[in-house]
Design a protein around this nucleic acid. Structure first.
Lengths: 135, 135
DNA sequence: ACCAGTTTTGACAATCATTTTCGTTTTCGT
DNA sequence: ACGAAAACGAAAATGATTGTCAAAACTGGT
């Protein structure tokens, strides 16, 4: 684990939400690091390969990453405004997905489940003013 | 509903699986159409805006589309090999997602749920030979 | 059939995230 | 300290998607 990769992991850990490679690159540069964009991509690739970070795709296809507390299988409840995420489990959903696959004769069944919404703080904020803010 | 858009919808309907804009463009051109790539993208945009087709993102961020039988909320069981999809419903999952969101104080809760696997025919095919085939 | 205005189209350029390339710098073992 | 291997980063390449803009097709009224 090189210093650079550690820096990327660190930057990711400081956020409770999902961040894109470009975001992290900007953060790191803003903190004075001389890291290159390529390295950020490589670090994220390695971290997600090893299962240390979770990846998902935004609606416009951008990959976003998150350093989760657990490396075991789980899903996320993600705020659409600030991107903060809560790790959630759903044994019932796991079972359901496996059953559905089996019922239709599919093998090697996996699934993706993400829940989106507006978190409490962001709801309040947008109710008071008219503008949403990105954290 | 212009002729071009209709042609795109038609091309999509002829497949039981998810297709990318580039795929559809290739199909249409192969059938002799003089349609442009830009138009295919525009048609898909319009069709998905109006809810006539479903969209999802592949692991590498490419958008893929499908003309589903129903326009009501549903999920998919998708074959990883041939991309054929089965429309599925899961009342339990709907409820679970809404509950999870509410429990954490999130509002406007939505969710994405997709199940992946290898369909029966594709399983057989890859068991017999070593090569997988794209339909 | 004809015209003026609107809509649709498609070739091409522009974007933008991500990946490759490739020479340079670091790290490590000895 | 020395050389091989791994990590870096700047710049170019890639590939899907979107923006631009002039030409083509379609519209309703005549």
């Amino acid at each position: 684990m090189s210093t650079r990769r550690e820096a990327v992991r660190q930057a990711l850990t400081e956020s409770s939400g999902f961040r894109s490679a470009q975001d992290l690159y900007a953060d790191l540069r803003a903190d004075g690091s001389k890291i290159g964009l390529t390295t950020v991509y490589r670090a994220l690739q390695a971290l997600s390969d090893s299962g240390e970070v979770d990846v998902l795709r935004t609606d416009d296809g951008e990959a976003v990453y998150r350093a989760c507390d657990t490396e075991s299988h789980h899903h996320h409840l993600v705020c659409r405004t600030c991107s903060t995420a809560v790790e959630i489990e759903g044994p019932a959903v796991e079972r359901w997905a496996a059953d559905v696959g089996a019922k239709h004769g599919f093998s090697g069944v996996t699934h993706t489940v993400e829940v989106f919404g507006t978190c409490g703080p962001c709801s309040l904020r947008s109710a008071q003013q008219g503008s949403a803010q990105q954290v």
